[in-house]
Amino acid sequence: MEIPKKLTVSASPHLHCGENTRTLMLDVLLALAPAAVMSVILFGWRCLLLMAISVAACVGFEYGARRVLGRPNSLGDLSAVVTGLLLAFNLPANLPWWMPVIGAFVAIVIVKQFFGGIGQNFVNPALVGRIVLLVSFPDAMAPAEWPLPLPYIAGVDTVTAASPLAALANGTAPSLQEMFTTATAYDPLSMLLGLRPGSLGETCAAALLLGGLYLCIRRTISPVIPLVFMGTTAAVTWACGQNPLFHLLAGGLMLGAIFMATDYTTCPINFKGKILYAFGCGLLTALIRLFGNMPEGVSVAIVLMNILVPHIERITTPKPFGYVKPKKEKGAAQ
C-alpha cells in the first residue's frame, strides 16, 4: 500500500482514554436521574415542570450569553443541563414557575459566563442561583410550611408541614434512639426514601447515595469530599449533643456533599486540599445549623469554602517527586 509523503506530526501521547467533558457531564446526569425520578414520585408532576423550566432556562442563557459575548457555542458539553438540574433540585415543589428562570440567569450569566465560562467560575453557579433566590424570595424559597411528599396518598387536609430542620431548631426532632424505637414521622426508612418535606431533589437520601456510589465507581468523583463533608457535620453535631443521623438525612446535606461540593471547577484538585475543603464545608454546615439564624447551612458553607479554594490549593500543593529545597545562593550564581 502506498505510504503518503506527508504525515501528521503532533505531540505525544498518541492515545487517549476516550472520555471528554460531555461524557463526564452525562455521568453526572445519570447519577442525578434516580433523585429526579424520586422527586416526581414524591412531590408530583409539578417537579417535572420546574426541572424542565430550570434546565431550559440554563441552556437558553448559556446559548444567549455565549452568543452575545461572541464566544463559541458550548451547549455540547452539557454543563448547563447539569447546572439547571441541580438548581431545580434546590427548589421547593410549589415554587412559582418563573422563579427558576431568575436563578438560572444568576447561575449561568453572572456566575459562569461573566467569569469566562466552564472551568472559570470561582463559586458553584447552581448554589449562588439558589442563594440569590433565597434572599430575594424568602417566603417562597424557605416557607414555614413545605409541601408534603406523596400528597395524593396523604389526602387533601395535610399537604404541608414544617421542614425537618425547623423541627431541629424548635427542639421537636427525635433523638438517635427515638428514631429507631418510637413511632415518629422521622424514622430512618422514611427519611432514606425521602418521605419528608424538603426541596425537590434533596429528600430521597437513598437515590442520592445511589448516584454518589455510581460516580465513585465510575471515578467521576473521588469519595473523599462527600465522606469528609458528611463525617464532619455528623461528628460536630453529635459532639454538640444533637442527633447526627438526623442531621445527615435532613436538609440538603446529601445533595450538597455528593453533587455540589464535588463540582470540579470549585473544589481543590489535590487530595489533601480536598480533605481540608470538605472538612471546612462540614464544619461550617454544622455551625450554621447549630448556631446560625438560618435553618439550613449547606449551600452557604459550600460557597464560602469555594471562595477559599485557591488558598487551600496553595498550601496543599504536593511536593514533586524527589523534591529538594532549592539553594538560594546557587540559584543566584547560575
Partner: peptide
C-alpha cells in the same frame, strides 16, 4: 494508508 507514523510507543513516541 498510514497518516501518522510513530517511532516508539504511542505514549512517548515521536511522530515522524
Amino acid at each position: 494508508p498510514p497518516t501518522k507514523i510513530l517511532m516508539g510507543g504511542p505514549m512517548m513516541g515521536i511522530a515522524q
